[in-house]
Structure formats: C-alpha cells, structure tokens
Design a protein around this nucleic acid. Structure first.
Length: 153
DNA sequence: GCCAACGTTGGC
DNA sequence: GCCAACGTTGGC
C-alpha cells in the first residue's frame, strides 16, 4: 500500500466540493505531466491513501485524507475536443493520459498548513512537497512521512 | 542531442 | 502581480 499527496486548487475542486460529491468520490482527471501520469498508470493501487492538498490559495495545506477506489485507467477528457484538457496528439487506441478514482475518507479536523509542514520539515525528512521548486501535482509520501504528518493534525 | 524560448505552477 | 523553478517544444 502506497501513500501520496495530491494537489488541487480549491477554486476548481476543494475539500467542500469533495464532501458534496456523490459517494464522496471523484475521478482525478486532467493530469498532463508524464511523471505524474506514470504514477497514476503504474503505481496507484486500490486502497492507497493520499493527503488532499489545497494549492494556489490563501491557506495552502493538507485538508483531507482520500483513498484510491479505482486504479489507473484512460482519462477520457484527453479525447474530448470540447474539453480544456483535450490533447489532440493522444489516441484512444493507445491512451497517453490516465486517471484514478478517489474517495474522501475524511476532512481533517483542522488543516495542516504548508507553514506548519515547513516548521516541522526536520521531522518530515524532506517531504517532496516541501522541496524547493517542486511542481508535480502528485508526489509519493513514505509511510514514516505519512505518520509524522498526520500526527500534526 | 543540444539548448533557447516559452508556458505553467504555485508560494508569496 | 511577481518571479523562481522546471517541463515542454522545436529549430538546428
């Protein structure tokens, strides 16, 4: 079982949207980065857990815990010309882009802010999210990092 | 294969 | 809105 951190902009889809979604589930579509695609396609497994992180907002940080309920499968938005994330180079016969389905396990009692994470960086042994210049929307989290981060709640 | 230009991310 | 960082693109 793996642990992850998944970023989302709350102005697009935040913890409140997640809590309102049918069955508290959503498909994680729109990833158009190869490193992240590889993780979604090859490494995500049912039962994996992830931190749900708000980025590009007033208070960046971890707002919830989610679990993977469906492993990697082709992202249909890549084939939809009317969609923002349409990729004309992708081919349904050999899909380029993948997504997973995730379910909200629970919102955190209170968010663990980026500020808080940084203040505890020494304990979190260089969690990828904290690394300078990190731009990946999904990053792996070690079991030790998961545990120590959650202890901050 | 190199690398400059460009686009995107995301904290501040 | 600024800007550092880094991925992608495309000419050569």
């Amino acid at each position: 079982m793996n642990y992850w951190l998944m970023k989302s902009e709350p102005s697009v889809f935040g913890i409140a949207d997640f809590a309102r979604a049918p069955k508290r589930r959503t498909c994680w579509d729109g990833v158009r980065n190869y490193q992240v695609r590889n993780m979604l396609r090859d490494d995500f497994a049912i039962g994996d857990q992830a931190f749900f992180y708000h980025s590009s907002c007033e208070q960046p940080g971890i707002y919830g815990i989610v679990k993977v309920v469906r492993a990697g499968y082709p992202d249909p938005t890549a084939f939809d010309p009317t969609h923002d994330h349409f990729d004309p180079k992708s081919d349904p016969a050999t899909p380029t882009w993948f997504m997973v389905d995730v379910e909200l396990v629970r919102p955190l009692k209170q968010p663990i802010t980026l500020e808080r994470l940084k203040a505890n960086a020494h304990k979190l042994s260089e969690m990828l999210i904290l690394r300078r210049g990190n731009r990946l929307s999904i990053t792996p989290v070690s079991a030790a990092q998961w545990k120590k981060t959650l202890a901050l709640e």
